[in-house]
Design a protein around this nucleic acid. Sequence first.
RNA 1: GGGGUUGUAGCCCAAUUGGCAGAGGCACAUGACUUAGGAUCAUGCCAGCGCGGGUUCGAGUCCCGCCAACCCCA
Length: 817
Amino acid sequence: MDEQVYDPQAIQAKWQPRWEELKPFAVVEDDADPRPRRYMLDMFPYPSGDLHMGHAEVFAIGDVVARYWFLKGYNVLHPIGWDSFGLPAENAAIKRNAHPAEWTYGNIDTQAASFQRYAISFDWTRRLHTSDAEYYKWNQWLFTRFFERGLAYRKGGLVNWCPNDQTVLANEQVVAGKCERCGADVIRRELTQWYFKITEYADRLVDDMARLEGGWPDRVLTMQRNWIGRSTGADVEFEIEGRKDPVTVYTTRPDTLYGATFFVVAADAPLAAEIVTEEQRPALEAYRAEVAKLSDIERMSTEKEKTGVFLGVHAINPVNGERIPVWAADYVLADYGHGAIMAVPAHDQRDLDFALKFDLPVKVVVHTGMADPGETGKATPGEGKLVNSGPLDGLSKAEAIEKIVEILAGRGTGKATVNFRLRDWLLSRQRFWGTPIPIIHCGECGEVPVPDKDLPVVLPDLRGEALAPKGVSPLASATDWVNVPCPSCGGPAKRDTDTMDTFVDSSWYFLRYLDPKYDDGPFDVAKAEKWGPIDQYVGGVEHAVLHLLYSRFFTKVLYDMGMITWDEPFLRLLNQGQVINGGKAMSKTLGNGVDLGVQIDNFGVDAVRLTMVFAGPPEDDIDWADVSPAASLKFLARALRVMTDASGAGTDFAAGDLELRKVVHRTIDEVTKLVETHRFNVAVARLMELTSAARKAIDSGPGAADPAVREAAEALAVMLSIVAPYTAEEGWERLGHQPSVARATWPVADPALLVQDSVTAVVQVAGKVRDRLEVSPDISDTDLEALALSSEKVKAHLDGAPRKVIVRAPKLVNIVP
RNA sequence: GGGGUUGUAGCCCAAUUGGCAGAGGCACAUGACUUAGGAUCAUGCCAGCGCGGGUUCGAGUCCCGCCAACCCCA
């Protein structure tokens, strides 16, 4: 019987074109539509070639949620687009002597075709690409608004520089001292760059995370909190001998001020060069050259041997007037706090390491009960009573902090303050394939934004060798493009030649989806009010601090601009795991990659999707060596056979076999709860049980004609469609329904069919099961106890009257002899 | 070094949130149907829950300590 043979490729070929006609997921924007709205968003892909196993997992998981919502009757927005600016396109263009757009849009077309085949429930009419001028025009428009609000500014300073990619990087893009993208060691360079003032939002970014509790994974919230790194402490002013103005340091431990025995300035801070004596200057210069080669991570590592140079001057401890030597060192960072610290070696390990290395005094001011740090080499950062600290003696840490801040404030030499680890977002890049920064530099007028009417500033047509990295932006070589009249005075001026970090593109794309052709602004404000914020966001945990932090920042700025009424973009976040192979991440170099296309050719789209969903909890990694798409295929064949066999069954469900009906409704009830709580793997297991129950009913129960068999098959088709849409659609048709199953209604369990006639009560004696009793589900504790105590099997284990009987009707009795 | 997550059959994973350790799948074994089986169907096998304590009538579940793996931060 041919129709019984399950041929996934044939079913795909049959349904894919039908769906393209039916467009079951196109959103109808109709204000009269009474259905509640839901916005489902997958992190959009970078077009680096065809889709791979990682994409297959995220999008399969996101699609389960989206399709579930469609079937539950929500008006669902589920869009797709491409994060299509970025370095790989540029590198490919250099290699092939081509334009980055060729590689980019070629890959996008490939991925789009794969998505169609993979049957994700996208509304294709909202497709966008961030490398389209009609998209990046609005990056420029937003940049201009940020500039006007003082949130985009240019400053000189030490920046992270990737010598391989020949561009600067944001702090977030430097991982363990290496370029996040290419792995090269990042070095520090002094450059003038554009920044977004994300630090102005640091407090709100921390505080508002309280509202995300429960909706976001805790670990992501923790990672963002750590990244922002809010700490409370104090600014303290120290006089430096020979310098007019005092120098401010930030400390989280102002209570230990009496224990400060030396003073450290970041070697690369301007202050070091300013105050160093002429004798010591050559030593400092040599030292600075060494330090420049190190990353922040290396500099702050507690493992690293401490280095430093005495600057030849002394500072005055403001509370006790002690003269303490001033050193330059690399373990203090120029851009954290004020680039200088008071060193308290007794109670800070790094300060202690430094003191021991250079033979500086160690003075204990907190009595912690631990051995003298000067002897042991172990600092005592814990709490205790203050000692050797004048007016602070005898106080606890909290009391001492309060008191010292009061004393300092009274003298005008210090104050309580909050400090952040978060730095401003360095957004300019010296590369081509990105959004040009819409600023014109004029000798007379300074930085002049390109007027809105002249946007977009379109990229000049550069290709091949012209894009090769050379330390300045390739845009600088496009002379015709660079030289423009100043919009303000009309005099000769030059365009800014840097492009924006591509994280700008992804910081607001979810708003552009609402109407990607919208021409009166970056997005339609009315639609943002209707659809936003995103109800469910799905993507990888690797974006825990980068993309998710930037998007939150943009959302808050847009809120402040009055363009949206919500100030957190993503209400719920699901981080799916990675697909690995043999315990290791799939990679080209390891040669352990698994080709998605080959898997689909062998097992079909549905089997691959099912494998992804069934492998385990969505947030866990999937080891491809542990799963079996062949087994998934087998199940789908069984399911389709059940749906086929049920096609002749009766339609009067109420007349169906009661036992099977109960299974059906219990399954509906459980699967619904499991999908709601994202336990998709368990939901699939329940569908497998339902399939087996229906199979048994057909073969050795009431038979294929029983209406309960149809009820089971139809519930199966609808519920299975969120994971395996092709198989479900084919089954739905064989059951005599019009396509598409995507427009069906999620089944509802009948409460009357969920109640059980009897349950098994377990009777334990001293915790050991001695008997099982079939009892009514609403038996009383007293009745159940009596029943249990009269059991012969129980009596056999009892010697006289029990000491205690615990009854949990209707499930359990435990008798303590 | 600090913080977090996880640890249940040979393997991937469940367990109504304190109540019979097993739902589903893989692998394996046996049988049925078969020219055949790497198809299909049926049946079966396998752990006492990472280790050690504690609370409790009762602990995979709660508490403490330890070990291991992974992830963040240093």
